[in-house]
Nucleic acid binder design. Sequence first.
DNA 1: CAATGTGAAGCCCTTCACAGCG
DNA 2: CGCTGTGAAGGGCTTCACATTG
Lengths: 205, 205
Amino acid sequence: MKIPDISIARLSVYARTLVELLEQGIETVSSRQLAEKIGVTSDKVRKDLSYFGQFGHRGIGYDVETLHNSITRILGLNRPWNIAICGAGNLGSALFTYQGFVKQGFKIVAVFDNNPKKIGTRWGRIEVTDSRKIPSTIKAKKIEIVIIAVPANAAQSISDEFISAGVKAILNFAPVKLSVPTSVKLRDVDLSTEIVNLTHFLSHK
Amino acid sequence: MKIPDISIARLSVYARTLVELLEQGIETVSSRQLAEKIGVTSDKVRKDLSYFGQFGHRGIGYDVETLHNSITRILGLNRPWNIAICGAGNLGSALFTYQGFVKQGFKIVAVFDNNPKKIGTRWGRIEVTDSRKIPSTIKAKKIEIVIIAVPANAAQSISDEFISAGVKAILNFAPVKLSVPTSVKLRDVDLSTEIVNLTHFLSHK
DNA sequence: CAATGTGAAGCCCTTCACAGCG
DNA sequence: CGCTGTGAAGGGCTTCACATTG
């Protein structure tokens, strides 16, 4: 069965919410309770979970810890992932310190930039690496996922470099369409399109 | 007719691409050419535009400048928008300097924070404002859109404050469900859900 | 009896295919 | 003749509704 991308995305929201419940010492949760906390319908919660198996107990609901473990495994978050950020600008810096990544077990083991003024500067436990060292660094540090946070005009060539170094998954923040082989998974985040929905709404009400 | 949110989001991508074409001195473009640059189908381009009117010339295509002007007007980007960023952390800082907002005519006229160490510090032409001054600042600076970039546990109360100060549109980066009146347009950006699609993909191939 | 799991229906966006028009 | 604009068909996600189960 084809699993909707959007269901996978929601799983991570469920996981986050289950962590909150765990911290509150809550042991059992129904699809309705979970749905309410998240702002979706209970049908959707159950349908999303049903793509992956049966996790609940009829009449009772879901065991918070068990469900959290299951979702974590489904998403592949039951082990750490080494990731790199490419682009040591403001966006790269914000993503580097973003706690959401750390909480899910991502380890940012490299930050690349081509600006001599930035190369070698210390960011927490690591130093900014020269973009020319991408191939060797990707292999040495076993980096599997790369976040692209460079200007639009540099994104395609940087993306090509990562892919030839063996990277199979890219999260792209550059506002440009990247061409990648079908064997590589690409997700785009376009910060400026989001706000345009708001101006459109405000202009037409 | 109900216009899909996603079509509106794509319009801003079309607009950005049209600007590039303008800069290259290209005067006419077909839906196919535009689609190819963006990575969508030509049907989609035409369908998206058809929700708003007829902009093309059969047998020829679209006049780049005219289409750009039309889209700009549809999206409400034919005038500047005063926006505020709430949260002077790393994410707030990255969004403050993000060129994508500036290019579309957004003016960031305030940055709020409740940390005494940050209040009063200078960011470009403005100073970080005490969150307690939200009501007066929103009105004085005619702020219409707010970007929330505060920790999850602070987001709801900050959102409430903005709404009672008259803000009608919110872009929320906090990983939490905000409750807002139906008269307020809310868009959520969840940075950490995006990357989870990648780990799921890598774990299951 | 409460809540899950899931076929089936519904709905919305995408894709198709072609009439229409310069 | 090329390309737009658009009804209609298609496909995928959401919602419904209920059989099922502890």
